[in-house]
Write a protein that binds this DNA or RNA. Structure first.
Lengths: 258, 258
DNA sequence: CAGTGGTCTAGACCACCCG
DNA sequence: GGGTGGTCTAGACCACTGA
């Protein structure tokens, strides 16, 4: 199992990491999108390791978005990640009410918990509308979003309505507001049970969690928490999209090799 | 090992996922930042599972940034993620030459590979400067960056110099350019060997890969590929930072519970 | 049905940290 | 030293897919 002829005193490279490197090369040179790899038991045998060790390498590659594993089917070469625009307001929230990009799941109106109230800058117990939506890209769910709006930010909201109407009303009222700006943050998370279901992924799948604060007239009028599938999504904040860059994996390899 | 009294016909929840849920509750209620958990063998025994199963749950929690595991020490409750500003130009590149936020590692000047040339919009083989830097937050490395600049974008760059001087010159020249805008993308990746070393993390650690295109006078003048430690970083794109939102984990729990 | 990936086990050894 | 997490093994059973 010589790695690359390293000195005995050198730091010993874990088998699974070496395996990953070998597989990356094989994937890049001998396979193309959608193709299925040999099954895990065979691969493990071929490389002379336990199946668990091989799986550790595959886990890495899946986290990088290079592989997709489907139970009962096999391990496939993943398509390059989809660039999902999140910068333009039309992509995020206002104007999206009529778009097909988002599908409303439900809408609740309830008093804010201490936690949520703090984040929204309102008093605890203040009424807050919460719209839950799913973002679709090419018909597939790519993200979930929980949009929290204090009732005080929507003075002209019509009275009681059916849930689906209420969601529409909230979104419509939001569009009427002048949005001065948004501030966002992005971090890594995992899909909880409900999100996992909406994203059609198993619980624990990695997601990019984007938190957006919408400001109007100097006040925070909405807080959106979105979870994007990390396996297939690349969040793009482009201002005026220049040419798209090639998959990062490749870019980074190039740099490393230089 | 009753989970929560679910029907036999219900979808069986994996043990490691149930374990994770239990641990999340324990962490939030009974532990505080920096505290060490019982060791893995003891925890596994206490929950009546194999150590490997327990580790699967801990892996999840580490990915979420709730735990930190240190070899020879133990498993600690992680501090909340650090918000790292990446939107303001002063945080990213121009003006950072004199700042203490970035430490230059090296600087190379070489012909562009086909891959890199395509991404930069120059001819293959064109001369490109590459500055490698590390971003420090509170003295700790939080990100690595490879900044690629076509020599054609820096017409006034002085001649040959020592490497450290060259890096400084490239950065200084870049600052002189008027930057019309940047377009960014963020996705999930893993740290390769060299990045891992700079970030003081083992290879394969999750990172947020941010790719930034800098545009000046309608032309792409620089391409930056940054890798941020996903365990401790939260990328913030705030325009004019309002109050910070609480840790997302909590926020999301609140929403789920509503 | 046979074949795939997903979960789980019990045990072993190693690399690292500290007193 | 003894204790920690990190790696690796060989095997088992389950859940899902497709023919």
């Amino acid at each position: 199992m010589e790695t690359t002829g390293q000195q005995p005193t050198a730091a010993p490279e874990p088998k699974y990491w070496h395996l990953r490197t070998v597989l990356v090369r094989a994937i890049d040179s001998e396979f193309s999108t959608g193709q299925v790899l040999p099954n895990e038991r065979e691969l493990a045998a071929r490389f002379g390791v336990a199946r668990a060790t091989l799986r550790q390498a595959l886990d890495q590659l899946e986290l990088e978005g290079r592989l997709v594993r489907r139970r009962g089917i096999g391990t496939l070469i993943a398509a390059p990640r989809v660039g999902v625009p999140v910068n333009r307001q039309e992509e995020g929230w206002p104007g999206a009410g009529r778009s097909k990009a988002w599908r409303t799941v439900d809408c609740t109106t309830a008093p804010a918990s201490a936690q949520l109230a703090g984040n929204l800058g309102v008093a605890e117990g203040a009424t807050v509308h919460t719209v839950r939506r799913v973002r679709l890209v090419e018909g597939r769910p790519m993200a979930t979003e929980s949009l929290h709006v204090p009732a005080s930010a929507l003075p002209h909201l019509p009275g009681f309505r059916a849930e689906s109407d209420r969601a529409r009303s909230v979104l419509r009222q939001l569009e009427r507001l002048e949005v001065d700006g948004e501030s966002r943050s992005v971090e890594l998370g995992v899909a909880e049970a409900d999100e996992a279901g909406l994203l059609e992924r198993p619980p624990g799948s990695p997601v990019l969690v984007m938190t957006t604060q919408y400001v109007s007239a100097g006040r925070l009028v909405a807080l959106a928490v979105s979870t994007y599938r990390a396996d297939t999504c690349k969040l793009t904040f482009g201002e005026t999209g220049l040419a798209d860059v090639a998959p990062v994996g490749v870019t980074r390899e190039v740099r490393t090799a230089s």
